[in-house]
Design a protein around this nucleic acid. Structure first.
Lengths: 355, 355
DNA sequence: TTGTAGGCGTTATCAA
DNA sequence: TTGATAACGCCTACAA
């Protein structure tokens, strides 16, 4: 029971049990049949000496570690933080450790970080790619690293993927707005080049066009400066043909959008209706509560791990893609469009913010 | 430039450069002087073959990996998610990888997860301990693993620590409430046994007593059931001597608190004033905006890493403790206490929620 | 069924 | 300054 100061090795166990190192290894890995008597001896020695196999040596010998990379854009988004939380738990229960990498949406950084990871001989990789991650993908493909891509599907399908049906989600979103009488919508995005965003924009425009109504469906970028964003949003909302419905492309955009509206002294759904992608935990406590498009995070994590486990077993299997549906949770932030919405709205603080 | 399919080793580099493996190693690690001519040869071969040292072999030989453990309770709290984000970046810039472990506030799980980590021969550990993590701490101490403890100080000071002055923070909080005329406060906590919580409770009661006023300072547990929590909170707020100021011990509690108040049809600061520890990103968008006690996350992360780096260099140095100040950001959620606050408030939905 | 020994890729010691 | 070589701890083919 006493914990030995210096590291106990498989050789110590072997000696203590009066068997050879081979036997110890066989018992621990179940690689070969070992007589019950010696099995007991070995296990007794193991627990007595408190032996834990050195993962470094194991990995070197086996050619790979028990490490799984989890590469996400950041930890600030509810979606990514949720995935990180879930994946760590699942990986741990399967005997793997998660090594965490954040790309900060920067393809260069992502590439460098992934290269560094590879030197650790990962057993697998779970990746939410950044906008231009061609090089990163080539890298892991070249290395033959078992990889599952989450949330964002690359143009080529070379990997296992677990993604969201962004088109359907957006189609539903537009349909709901239309049903409430809205005809002019604004989609606010942060990374227009992201495939996720592109799919949503496409569906946004297409659904509006296909409605057969006289609709306008515009797209606006968030940018990196909150004050500037507020000013630009104000400009949009001052126009006589202003949008009556706003859709935010993620948690962060949703937050900025709400801050901007509050700074402008606007209320929802009175002045404008709101909807946000992803599922921030604060969505139901802003007043009125925010409608959201919820990602099935738990399901994504579970399925991603299953895919990765299978890929690790069968590296050559053809790539699979699983597409999950997001759920629109409609709350009070979406209201009926007053009249035809062509009256302008007063923006008390617009000038203050526009500086 | 062409990426070789099979892994290139130090031996390949040596052969390609026409030198011995030792020389390559010396050049790469700067361990010994190597003539300029051979140095060039080696570096050329390295870049030509695209050689990256195998971390597993390196670690085995050196006796430790380039992995640093980061053990946090979860990813749902703004504080922990922020720390995870920052620490990953800092570690990466120092050439380390972060292996992520979540204890979910469970000491057993924490212990198991840390044991598993140790087999990877970590270079260091950054740890936010759970409530009863004596065993975990003994474990890492026994192993002699360079460790820095964040946010929660254990009773014994055996480790480097970077913590928050919870007493001062709470003292300030109570003082502000008192200045606004409040005399009856309720502190809502989730983990009463956490040292952080205990320190805050102590300061909470002490400051109230030391004010010399007739104050009541009560503590309430959040529990695990939201409906039950709302009911209990309602019960508190129905009493004629109800609290007029509520303090939430963290992000999650703050969220539950606000949900409960909204469900009860109460408004702040009209019916009750609010303050929350930690700094959720939604604090300024709830209406009226929530006052918070903000942790200096970035500073915590930076200093923690510096401490760890120093501890890795000098394992035997005496343990240090750095205490940082939290900042109370007062917003509209804290208002003056109306009259003596002894009038009861109507709770429209109390019965619905109390089921 | 069990033991022996070679090798995974590095680093570091010891000669040259 | 450089090269050969012995570990590091583990797994596994091979021999017994």
């Amino acid at each position: 029971m006493a914990a030995p100061e210096t590291k106990v090795t498989i050789l110590d166990v072997a000696r203590h049990a009066g068997v050879s190192v081979g036997t110890v290894s066989y018992v621990l890995n179940g690689t070969k049949n070992v007589s019950e008597a010696r099995r007991r001896l070995v296990l007794a020695a193991v627990s007595e000496l408190n032996y834990v196999p050195n993962r470094l040596a194991q990995g070197l010998r086996r050619g790979q570690s028990r490490l799984v990379g989890v590469c996400l854009p950041n930890m600030a988004s509810a979606l990514f933080a949720g995935l990180a939380d879930l994946l760590e738990g699942i990986a741990a229960r399967s005997g793997f450790e998660v090594v965490q990498v954040l790309s900060q949406q920067d393809p260069e950084l992502e590439y460098r970080r992934l290269s560094a990871l590879l030197a650790h001989r990962l057993a697998g990789l779970l990746l939410v790619p950044s906008a231009r991650s061609g090089a990163s993908l080539d890298l892991v493909m070249r290395e033959g690293l078992p990889t599952v891509i989450l949330d964002r599907t690359p143009t080529q399908q070379r990997f296992d993927e677990i993604i969201i049906d962004n088109r359907a989600a957006m189609q539903d979103a537009v349909a709901r707005f239309v049903a409430l009488g809205h005809r002019r919508l604004l989609f606010i995005v942060s990374y227009p080049h992201l495939i996720t965003t592109r799919q949503r924009i496409e569906a946004f425009r297409h659904t509006a066009r296909a409605s057969g109504l006289r609709m306008s469906a515009e797209v606006m970028q968030r940018g990196d400066d909150a004050a500037d964003f507020a000013a630009r949003l104000a400009a949009q909302l001052c126009r006589p043909d202003r949008p009556t419905g706003l859709i935010a492309s993620n948690t962060r955009v949703g937050l900025w959008m709400i801050r901007a509206l509050q700074a402008l002294g606007l209320a929802w759904p009175r002045d404008v209706s709101l909807l946000a992608f992803e599922h921030p935990d604060w969505a139901d406590i802003v007043q009125p509560p925010l409608s959201v498009i919820e990602h099935p995070t738990a399901e994504m994590a579970t399925l991603a791990w299953e895919m990765l486990a299978r890929r690790m077993r069968e590296p050559a299997a053809p790539p699979r893609r699983i597409e999950l549906q997001a759920t629109l949770v409609q709350r009070a932030s979406m209201g009926c469009c007053a009249a035809d919405g062509h009256e302008t709205i007063p923006i008390p603080h617009a000038e203050v913010e526009a500086t």
